[in-house]
C-alpha cells in the first residue's frame, strides 16, 4: 500500500520507520516508536498536547505527515528528560504544580522549552502568547505560567545560563 521508509533524528538518535502514506508524526511517535509523551487530545491542531520540536521549532505532530520530517531533528519530552533527575524546566513545572491531570503537560513543557531557547527572559505577555495554543482544562493556567516564569528566573534555558 505504498509504505515508505522514513529516516529522521529523534532526540539525537537516527531512527528509521516504515510509514503508510500520510501517517502523522504523532501516530509514528506514539504507536510505532512508543514515544507516548506525545499526547493525542484532538488530532485537529486544536489542543497543543502533541507539540514536538522539529529543528527546534514547536509544531503539532498531529498535523504533520511523518514523511515531511525526513532528515530533520525531532525532539519530544522524552528527548529532553535527563537520565538522572529532571530538566530545570520540568523541575519548575513540578515545583509550581503546573499541572493537575497531566495530559496537557508534555505539550506545555515542549512549547515552553522552545520559548526559553528563543527568549530566555520572556515577559508574562510573551509566555501567554507562546502557550496560547495549548489547552489545559484543569489548572486555569496560572500555575503553568508561574512554572515558566520560575524556570526563566532559574535560568532554565541554556542561553540564559551562558549569561
Amino acid at each position: 500500500m505504498g509504505s515508505k521508509i522514513v529516516t529522521f533524528v529523534l532526540g539525537g538518535r537516527e531512527v528509521e520507520v516504515m510509514v503508510k502514506p500520510m501517517t502523522t508524526l504523532q501516530a509514528v511517535l506514539r504507536y510505532q516508536l512508543g514515544y507516548t509523551a506525545v499526547k493525542e487530545g484532538c488530532r485537529q491542531g486544536g489542543c497543543g498536547s502533541c507539540t514536538v520540536l522539529v529543528e527546534g521549532e514547536p509544531v503539532l505532530a498531529c498535523l504533520l505527515p511523518a514523511e515531511d520530517v525526513a532528515g530533520q531533528q525531532v525532539t519530544t519530552l522524552e528527548s529532553i528528560t535527563p537520565v538522572d533527575g529532571l530538566d530545570p524546566l520540568q523541575q519548575a513545572f513540578l515545583d509550581a504544580s503546573g499541572f493537575q491531570c497531566g495530559y496537557c503537560t508534555p505539550g506545555m513543557i515542549m512549547v515552553s522549552k522552545a520559548l526559553l531557547e528563543h527568549n530566555p527572559r520572556p515577559t508574562r505577555e510573551e509566555i501567554l502568547d507562546a502557550l496560547a495554543g495549548n489547552i489545559c482544562r484543569c489548572t486555569g493556567y496560572e500555575p503553568i505560567v508561574a512554572a515558566v516564569e520560575g524556570a526563566a528566573q532559574a535560568g532554565a534555558a541554556p542561553g540564559a545560563q551562558r549569561r
Binding site: 500520510m22 502523522t24 488530532r43 491542531g45 486544536g46 498531529c62 498535523l63 504533520l64
Partner: peptide
C-alpha cells in the same frame, strides 16, 4: 501547511486517494 487538511483526514471526514504536499 496541513492545518486545514490534516484534521479532515484524521477524523475520516476527507478520504482522498492521493494527497500532494
Amino acid at each position: 501547511g496541513g492545518t486545514l487538511t490534516m484534521p479532515l483526514i484524521n477524523e475520516g471526514i476527507a478520504m482522498p486517494d492521493r494527497v500532494m504536499s
